[in-house]
Design a protein around this nucleic acid. Structure first.
Lengths: 216, 216
DNA sequence: GTCTATAGCAGGATAGAC
DNA sequence: GTCTATCCTGCTATAGAC
């Protein structure tokens, strides 16, 4: 846990350390003393670089979370391009993969989802930021892609609910590891994560009425 | 917000007030002062009745959350019985309805989901409690019911993933009201909630490969 | 059982040495 | 820029009056 990240500039170390702590415990539960200890610098450093604790939290989103979110979106487009398919299954798989197997370490992906989940659960100023800069445009993009890919016209309203249903599963399976492991009896190995990814894609594809399984 | 619940015994008022606050803000973010103010009693009351803050949190689960969870399960069985159908659609609808339209006020349902979501996100001693007493037996019950209802045999492992996919949507649509409203452009009226319930049931039913829509 | 008063401590923030 | 020392607020928890 004690991440005596001695490498880069203190400001960066504080951003890294505090993001991990905010994600894990939530804003209020984290103390400045804890942060600077993990970042390997002095108590005064947070106030020196960020003025106050609250600013640090917002800077974590500005300097870490949002750039990473853009990379995830980029990874989605890359997945789609590489798969060479723009059908519904291709889109859903690229979407799920971008979150579940994206261009980051396991730890970083969890951190990312946790911070988002916290803002979803109890929105703060940070929510408005990511809603505007990240969520809104991405939802728009996905809706456009899906609309083109679907054989029959579907109402935007319905399409959005479907997207949210897919997204809810992605969030849950990244976030709720404890109950998922409890009920499935499996630890989060890379094999199991692949398994989950396949499940989400298959379930959602059928959920969209595009699946091949089960219809008799 | 200031719930000067002057009715019943102070102990009960504290349980009510603190459950609402813990659900809304999380354990660390809530202070004893805040709790007693909302409960309309004195600072010393929490320590008098519960010894320490942490115990109060656990008692909230013991005395409020778990009994409510049992009622939700009861409501599921009631839904199933009343609908007079034990097929897959009946089970899923009864499941979703028990959470989304259960035997409690809107506020109380949100409170319930939020507390659970917090324990899922960051499990504490309370998680072990509810996993053992509530989650495990209920998952077992649902798996048994579904297994009987499904036409073809499905592996337990797969069945559990499907259940979790359904559950993830229920949690998300209760919990993530802000983004859901943002993207759908709808407030959580009772009409919209019914709409959501129908969506979850339809999406999940098709996800199970039992739907009627979309297969050509 | 319920209150007031307060002990004792941890937190955020700052002043000022180096 | 980075540190130590410290202020001050607000917290949990308790002691003791009523």
């Amino acid at each position: 846990m004690v991440e005596t990240n001695q490498g880069p500039h203190p400001r960066e170390r504080i951003l890294d350390a505090s993001e991990a702590l905010f994600a894990e415990k939530g804003y209020e539960a984290v103390t400045i003393r804890e942060i600077v200890k993990a970042a390997g610098c002095n108590v005064a450093a947070v106030n020196y670089y960020f003025g106050q604790k609250r600013n640090l939290y917002l800077e974590v989103f500005e300097c870490r979370w949002i750039p990473r979110a853009y990379k995830i979106q980029e990874s989605f487009r890359e997945n789609l391009r590489k798969s060479g398919r723009s059908d519904v299954e291709g889109i859903i798989r690229a979407f799920a993969m971008a979150f579940l197997e994206g261009p980051f370490s396991e730890k970083e992906r969890i951190r990312h989802s946790q911070l988002m989940a916290r803002e979803i659960a109890r929105p703060s100023e940070a929510f408005d930021l990511i809603a505007k800069k990240v969520m809104r445009p991405f939802v728009r993009e996905l809706v456009e892609l899906l609309r083109k890919a679907l054989p029959a016209p579907v109402r935007d309203h319905e399409l959005i609910l479907i997207l949210l249903s897919i997204f809810s599963q992605i969030i849950y399976f990244t976030f709720a590891r404890r109950p998922v492991s409890l009920f499935t009896g499996k630890r989060y190995t890379s094999e199991f994560r692949e398994n989950l990814c396949d499940h989400i894609v298959a379930f959602s594809l059928r959920g969209l009425g595009m699946g091949n399984g089960g219809c008799s």
